[in-house]
Design a protein around this nucleic acid. Sequence first.
DNA 1: CGCGCTCGTTGACATTTGTCATCGCGCCGC
DNA 2: GCGGCGCGATGACAAATGTCAACGAGCGCG
Lengths: 207, 207
Amino acid sequence: MSGAAGGIRVLLADDEHLIRGALAALLALEDDLTVVAEAASGPEALAMARAHRPDVAVLDLQMPGADGVSVARALRSELPGCTTMIVTGHGRPGHLKRALAAGVRGFLPKTVSAQRLAEIIRSVHAGNRYVDPELAADAISAGDSPLTAREAELLELAADGAPVTEIAARAALAPGTVRNYLSSAAAKLGAENRHAAARIARQRGWI
Amino acid sequence: MSGAAGGIRVLLADDEHLIRGALAALLALEDDLTVVAEAASGPEALAMARAHRPDVAVLDLQMPGADGVSVARALRSELPGCTTMIVTGHGRPGHLKRALAAGVRGFLPKTVSAQRLAEIIRSVHAGNRYVDPELAADAISAGDSPLTAREAELLELAADGAPVTEIAARAALAPGTVRNYLSSAAAKLGAENRHAAARIARQRGWI
DNA sequence: CGCGCTCGTTGACATTTGTCATCGCGCCGC
DNA sequence: GCGGCGCGATGACAAATGTCAACGAGCGCG
């Protein structure tokens, strides 16, 4: 099931051409790694994976269409033999949690070096897991989301600054109910108001 | 004043090791480009520029310490012979405007290819300017900030969801005054309230 | 100079938002 | 079955926020 003579077959997905191309060139220097496909969006990454059946998929977290975690989840069911890794610029604790739940085997920030990335690709391909220590520490200290499903949902609707009446309309709820949930969410997050709460929740990756 | 035998001397500043390293490797393949220094933060970029006096400085917009535009401004006065370029993941219209005001000669998103980047480096080094067409269109359609200095200042203080009283204290103003500015800013931006206004202003790069 | 203009500032008033006490519902253990 | 418990929902009340009209300071212009 592993790569052919060329070594480990890698899929690279990142919407930033500059980075993707540069990365491809750099990984190509490693004898045992072969970049067999590149993609600039979530759907494209999926299509490429179906067509080229890579051993390892290196996915950016933020891509147009579908984020890295969604792609990883889809790959897990469609191509069980393909190991997935997430690479991200700014890692939010919640993302890491969701990524691991989606079967991702590696999670690291873009601050690592290319050589380190190559090592990690080999490592996860060999069956190990790798999570960036700092991101792991953040995730642990941030802990689980204390929000109920309803609270998270309403907080997300409130995140763009919409007034309560609009949120109530969109959620088909009474305005008072909405206020109550948001108030509760803000209290749990230690925020002064729902807007600050939304910021915190987003920062932690909880919405 | 131009580069020595090695060609155009380039400084690369980006906090993402992965990208910076990969980019350096890729640019090194071009005969007429030499990466003489790399930096992972704003201050480091400045120090490196002072030490190595590059012909062209390629700066990421978002870096720890000081953003690319600040670095460009500092370089403009300290090393007039050094041409500056900004490379960014998500370009906001206001950033482009500020960058041009800071004397930046090139502004492009990370979605361009490495080869294109090399061409643009040569072009700006030759005295031309380059602005990504799409970013330019965004900037033009977004237009100038309609906010007065005070409005922008207070909107920025309001951006993290702080209550009005706290903003008033930080700005040494009466709460009513703060409300009035924020209200005015929200009206100009077509927002329902100050939080939505802050989002819009940030998106447009006006704060 | 005196005029009109804009910006910064303020307090009074209406509206929105946050807090609280309360109620109904479904679920689990006993 | 039934009492306790947590979640979802609601309205009354208090506090924060947004809206409005107004005033003074600075500035360009006839």
